[in-house]
Amino acid sequence: MESIVASHLYKSFDKGRIPALLDVSLSVEQGELFGLIGPDGAGKTTLFRILATLLLADQGEAKVDGLDVKQAYKAIRHRVGYMPGRFSLYQDLSVEENLDFFAKVFGTTIQENYYLVKDIYQQLEPFKTRKAGKLSGGMKQKLALCCALIHKPSVLFLDEPTTGVDPVSRKEFWEMLQKLKQEGISILVSTPYMDEASLCDRVALMQKGKILDIDTPSHIIDKFPKKLWAVSATNMYQLLMDLRAFSATAACYSFGESHHLTLKNDASDAASLQQYLTEKKHKDLKINTIKPTIEDCFMAML
């Protein structure tokens, strides 16, 4: 069964001057963890708001749990959990007061669905009397997730829950999402961190209001059109300059400890690459073919 269906959504702001969504279609299965991957300005937040009944699309249709987002907005609001991109809890209320309040908002109690938030809430418990505004970034997001989950929604919308959160807290956050998936909750989550894509069942890569591709992370990687080389040496900056100046280079991006390189012609150019770099006298030169990451794929699609 499909939990979320969007078909040919268009949305623009400022009387059409700022297009936000251009023909966006996707569907999310029940119990699926679906990622919207894309940088700021890709249109992720607009899509979330349309699906969460907060905005009306200019064109196109969307359904959540089989209900139309325009007509049946009231019914949808009973079933979804929504965590907006900005931290949206009451900063002057304590952790416990926030959770208790949102439980009441959805006509439930903390006890009723405690099993669902237990793992997360246990981490927050030592700080339960602390004001939400005084929590660290990672903790705030965990609390917000608790608040969005407390009424056991069937669909969860998480708009950039890990932005600005440190890598450790981010990892913990994704582990929680994996567990929630087991409960049969459909999750639509967006992130600007490409490395988080591999944690989703399927992802939609978005850029400037358009969907570039929708697939499982492994399929997206398999579709990478070329051989990818990881090149490293002692002087990485000089190496990058040299690689970009190389006539057979199709694209070269720095990727932390190595530069990721694609060549115009995989078969014929590999040998000349080795020769070219040796001539440039790079020390500790390493050239390997590697499996692309989602980030490589994303950049190849631009």
Binding site: A52, R77, V80, P84, S88, L89, Q91, V105, F106, C147
Partner: peptide, 13 residues
């Protein structure tokens, strides 16, 4: 401004 209105709007309240 805080964005809490957004969360409350997407609730049955």
């Amino acid at each position: 401004e805080l964005g809490t209105m957004e969360v409350l709007l997407v609730s049955p309240v």
